[in-house]
């Protein structure tokens, strides 16, 4: 009979319509912003800079090596090296960035800066509600805006942050072991 296929299809529509009230997998969207889905561990949006402790300037892990600036595919990172050094988490004197800007209007959230950073200093944020009224300056994230504490990192990527912490602690322990096993004068010259 002509039209039987259409009626069969409409029965399916009816089943879906009624089903969406009872079966949760038939209605999988949520009304944002009243309701939010829990963030995924691996979710990524824009990068941020991690600092240890409470002081953003003293605890910043970034040593201004500018590797990320060089490797970033759309070239949206801008770093100025400070002439003043500061001790890093192992106590060794390292450079620090004077300016560290990321142009969020250009950044494509690719995570390559995170992959190439040898110091675990830059990580991906999950914050996505970043709209501003200023198209250029408003989307330029400066060092102050980008610096976020390690506790925040633990909050958004718990598993990954734990691994990084273990990794850094192991590096510190190795360094200490080496310093202890060597004569004091030698360690001082390093």
């Amino acid at each position: 009979m002509l039209g039987a296929g259409i009626i069969k299809g409409l029965a399916e529509t009816a089943r879906n319509f009624v089903g969406s009230y009872v079966v949760p997998e038939r209605l999988i969207t949520v009304p944002y912003p009243e309701q939010r889905l829990p963030a995924q561990e691996n979710a990524r949006n824009f990068p941020f800079l991690v600092y240890d402790g409470d002081d953003a300037a003293a605890g910043l892990r970034c040593v201004a090596c500018q590797i990320c600036e060089k490797e970033c595919p759309p070239q949206c990172i801008y770093i100025v090296k400070d002439v003043v050094k500061k001790p890093d988490h192992t106590g060794k004197l390292q450079f620090q960035p004077k300016a560290f800007d990321i142009d969020l209007s250009v950044c494509m959230s690719c995570q390559i800066c995170v992959e190439v950073c040898p110091f675990d200093a830059i990580k991906m944020d999950t914050e996505f509600e970043l709209s501003t009224t200023d198209r250029f300056g408003g989307l330029l994230a400066t060092k102050d805006q980008l610096s976020k504490p390690n506790t925040y990192y633990h909050q958004i990527h718990p598993g990954e942050a734990r691994q990084v912490d273990e990794h850094l602690a192991a590096a510190r322990a190795r360094l200490e072991a080496r310093t202890l096993s060597k004569p004091a004068g030698d360690a001082g010259s390093r």
């Binding site: 999988i28 995924q40 561990e41 691996n42 990524r44 690719c110 390559i112 991906m124």
Partner: peptide, 30 residues
């Protein structure tokens, strides 16, 4: 949507996955 959720939990992004690397993949399955 359900497949994209899987992609997000694996690669961090729903559509712009940037996941494969030369000689393998970027990260292991969660």
């Amino acid at each position: 949507e359900k497949i994209l959720d899987l992609f997000e939990s694996l690669t961090g992004s729903r559509m712009m996955c940037n996941y494969m690397r030369f000689g393998g993949c970027r990260c292991d399955l969660p």
